[in-house]
Every structure is written in structure tokens, then in C-alpha cells.
């Protein structure tokens, strides 16, 4: 008697997650289309001007809107997906299989990554088309890597909610957390253009530190503090997700 190979099961889970989005893309529509639309508008207007940190606005916005797009996909997609699997009974069917449920959960996070990457690719394509090359390939790669890795605490938060709430409630709760957090972190409108008190809140938000970490890949600014905050956020949201998982009702 052997347990099924974890790798093979993970492959199935990721494939199922990817198919879900490809075949019914409506769920990811806003996560992908909203950041790309806003980004296009803003780069067309201000893209080649310099921003306060010295980079062209288009380069800065690649970091801030990139953070917004990646967080949006990673916070919403795995969480909502797990909530609807609970609601439909599919998670209950998988729970009586020989494959441990944590593989299902890991599969959902992994299956969301290509879509997060797709948002970044779309933003990059728009920046190239509208303004031309604004950053080198090396910094761009680092930007992509830190954004994807840094999305982990947001995925954990999404899962924590998705383990407990209905699919509709999960969508509502996660969006209600996402949008204020994104705006107050200066991901849509630069903090310099917002009231000073917003700038006071921003350092308490993990989205702010993710965007700053991404920007640091372009400016070379020190990044250790942002990494620490994101690690702490991962510990907290990972703990939350673990607690919610133990109270998982299927």
C-alpha cells in the first residue's frame, strides 16, 4: 500500500486550477483587467515624466501597479476558489481521497501564479508600447521575482477567509480588505499626491512594503526592512490560515 505521489497529485491540482480560470475566466476579469486599464491610462498621460524617486513614472508604476495586480490575483483567486470548492462539495469529495488536503491548497496557490505573472507581462507590454523600454532586463526579473514571492502573505490571508466563509462572503471580504489597502499604500495614486495622513498609514500596510520592495529593485534603495515586514506578515497570515484550516468545515 503506497500513498499517491505528492508530486503527481500536485500536478493534477495545478492543472485543475489553471483549467478553471482558462475555461471560466470571468472570476479573474477584474483582477487582471482593472490594473491593466488604469496602468494604460496613467502611462499614456504621465509615463515618460520623472517621478520623485528619479525613475520615469512608467517604471515606478510598473512596481506599484504590478504590486496591485499580483496582490489582487493572489489574495482573491486561491481564497475564492477554496471557498467555492467547499460550497459545491468538491472539497468534501477530495477529503475522502488518499491525497492530503494541503496539496489541494498548495495547488491553488501555485495555479494562481501564472495569472499573476500574466498581469505583470501585460503591464510590461503596455509600458513598452506606450513609453518604450524604461528598465533593464535584470531589474525587471528581480521585480517579477519579489512580487511573486511577496504575494505569499496575501495568498494566506485569502485562504484563511476562504476556509471559513462562503464564496460570496469571501469575495466581498477580500475585496473590502484589498481596495482600501491598495489605495492607502499609494499603489493607484502616488502617496505624494494624497493627503499626508494617508502617507502616515501606509507603512503599516504590507502592500506598501511589497511595492517599496519592488521599487527598490529598480532604484537600488535598501530593502531589508520591507523584507522583514513581509516576512512578519507571512507569519501572521500563515498562522491565521493554519488556524482556519483546523476549523475547516466541508
Amino acid at each position: 500500500m503506497t500513498a499517491p505521489g505528492a508530486g503527481a497529485v500536485l500536478g493534477v491540482e495545478v492543472a485543475e486550477g489553471l483549467r478553471g480560470v482558462i475555461r471560466e475566466p470571468a472570476a479573474l476579469f477584474f483582477s487582471v483587467v482593472v490594473p491593466v486599464l488604469f496602468f494604460t491610462m496613467f502611462t499614456a498621460l504621465f509615463g515618460s515624466m520623472p517621478s520623485p524617486n528619479g525613475l520615469p513614472v512608467a517604471a515606478s508604476m510598473l512596481a506599484t501597479f504590478g504590486a496591485f495586480g499580483v496582490v489582487s490575483v493572489m489574495q482573491l483567486n486561491p481564497g475564492i476558489s477554496v471557498a467555492s470548492d467547499r460550497e459545491s462539495g468538491w472539497l468534501r469529495m477530495k477529503k475522502v481521497s488518499a491525497a492530503p488536503v494541503w496539496i489541494t491548497i498548495a495547488g491553488k496557490v501555485l495555479a494562481a501564479l501564472p495569472y499573476a505573472l500574466a498581469v505583470l507581462a501585460a503591464l510590461t507590454a503596455v509600458a513598452l508600447a506606450v513609453v518604450g523600454p524604461v528598465i533593464g532586463v535584470g531589474p525587471w526579473l528581480r521585480l517579477v521575482v519579489v512580487l511573486l514571492l511577496g504575494s505569499l502573505p496575501f495568498a494566506c490571508l485569502g485562504l484563511a477567509v476562504g476556509f471559513l466563509a462562503s464564496a460570496n462572503a469571501t469575495t466581498a471580504i477580500l475585496n473590502a480588505i484589498l481596495f482600501p489597502m491598495v489605495i492607502a499604500s499609494g499603489l493607484w495614486i502616488p502617496l505624494e499626491a494624497m493627503p499626508a495622513w494617508v502617507g502616515g498609514i501606509a507603512p503599516f500596510l504590507p502592500t506598501y512594503h511589497l511595492a517599496q520592495l519592488a521599487l527598490a529593485q529598480l532604484t537600488g534603495a535598501p530593502a531589508a526592512a520591507h523584507v522583514l515586514v513581509l516576512l512578519a506578515a507571512t507569519v501572521v497570515t500563515g498562522g491565521l490560515a493554519g488556524w482556519a484550516y483546523r476549523n475547516l468545515r466541508v
Binding site: M1, T2, A3, P4, E16, R19, G20, R23, E24, D85, E87, S88, G89, W90, R92, M93, V96, S97, A98, A99, P100
Partner: peptide
């Protein structure tokens, strides 16, 4: 989990993901 390798189950409530 390894014990459930021996099981085949049809539950009273089914729920397949619609996209598969």
C-alpha cells in the same frame, strides 16, 4: 490519508467543479 487508498467512495452529496 494512506488508509484511504483502500477506499472507493460515492458520497450522498456530489459536487464537481463545473469546468472539468
Amino acid at each position: 490519508a494512506a488508509t484511504r487508498r483502500l477506499l472507493g467512495v460515492v458520497q450522498q452529496q456530489l459536487g464537481f467543479p463545473r469546468t472539468l
